[in-house]
């Protein structure tokens, strides 16, 4: 049987992405059911991430499955020196599927190589976080009614921000126009610009976060600029407020514009934006449950649309 693990969003093709989104849509309409009745889902969080763990566990609970696992490596055998391989092999005896988060990059990929139980990557360091990307895609689809031909503006830390890289990789199937707004130090890495070139995707690099860019956008994807990313503290002080969105900047924007953010936010979206109907970042998080229900059922080979 084809592996149903999900380690990285770019492992799955356009058709499978659309299938996952259709599932998410189904689960939004039918959030509660018993289709995971009798299934045991292990959530192994070697690194704490309350938001992601609760979202996955809610997804399981609403579908009638059971959850085992840990929320912090200090409460697992890892603290006694057990290797990742041994932990995965042991848990594979108990669970039908493993959802794992690890600070080590490549941990989820490696896990798929030591067990036949499907693995769902819930984040491996700065590497991949496919369920975040799926919920971003679902949020875009839901608010715009389509994924095709949208103008997507990514703002902030485009160099280290894994969410923007994964979103770019997922959106490449849908003929977008990208605006990449960042300081030179945090600009989109060349390998992703190469992807755009290869796929014939229009993109524009900007260092100024102007209203013209906002007014042309369908989606504003804001990210956090972290101080520790800067080799030069002066440089950070110089740019930290250049990429903050204020409510007044949205005056000329499209009525259908929506603002997304993977959260947590610090100061890159001013709180005066929160009550603007274009602010979507809180509802975006709610879509995470449906996206994760989609991922879990796909990984288990259960098709809710055919039940």
């Amino acid at each position: 049987m084809k592996s149903r693990s999900l380690v990285a969003i770019d492992q799955i093709d356009k058709q499978e992405l659309l299938d996952l989104l259709a599932r998410a849509q189904y689960f939004e309409a039918h959030p509660n059911s018993k289709i995971l009745d009798g299934k045991v889902v292990a959530t192994l969080f070697f690194e704490p991430s309350t938001r992601t763990r609760l979202s996955f566990e809610t997804a399981v609970n609403r579908l009638g499955g059971r959850v085992i696992g840990f929320s912090d490596a200090s409460t697992s055998s890892t603290s006694k020196g057990e290797t990742l391989k041994d932990t995965i092999k042991m848990v594979s005896n108990y669970a039908d599927i493993i959802v794992m988060r690890h600070f080590i990059e490549g941990a989820a990929q490696y896990a798929t190589e030591v067990t036949d139980v499907p693995i769902v990557n819930a984040g491996d360091g700065a590497n991949q976080h496919p369920s975040q990307t799926l919920l971003d895609l679902y949020s875009i689809l839901k608010t715009q009614g389509t994924l095709e031909g949208l103008t997507i503006t990514m703002v902030g830390d485009l160099k280290y921000g894994r969410t923007v890289h994964s979103l770019l990789m997922a959106m490449r199937h849908f003929k977008p126009v990208f605006n990449f707004v960042s300081s030179d130090e945090l600009r989109m890495p060349q390998e992703y610009l190469d992807v755009c070139e290869r796929e014939g995707i229009e993109y524009h690099l900007h260092t100024e976060f102007s209203e013209d860019i906002i007014n042309s956008s369908d989606i504003l994807y804001m990210t956090r600029v972290q101080r520790e990313r800067f080799s030069d503290v002066m440089e950070y002080e110089k740019v930290k407020n250049l990429y903050t969105l204020h409510n007044a900047m949205l005056d000329g924007s499209k009525p259908t514009l929506r603002i997304l953010h993977p959260l947590p936010r610090v100061n890159e979206i001013s709180t005066d934006v929160d009550d603007n109907p274009k602010a979507y970042y809180f509802e975006q998080a709610r879509n995470g449950v449906f996206a994760r229900q989609a991922i879990l059922t796909r990984a288990l080979g259960i098709d809710p649309l055919k039940l």
Binding site: T83, K85, F103, I104, E105, G106, Y110
Partner: peptide
């Protein structure tokens, strides 16, 4: 060369 890579933490 990524110190956080799994290959630098597990015997693989």
């Amino acid at each position: 060369s990524n110190p956080k890579c799994v290959t630098n933490h597990e015997k693989i």
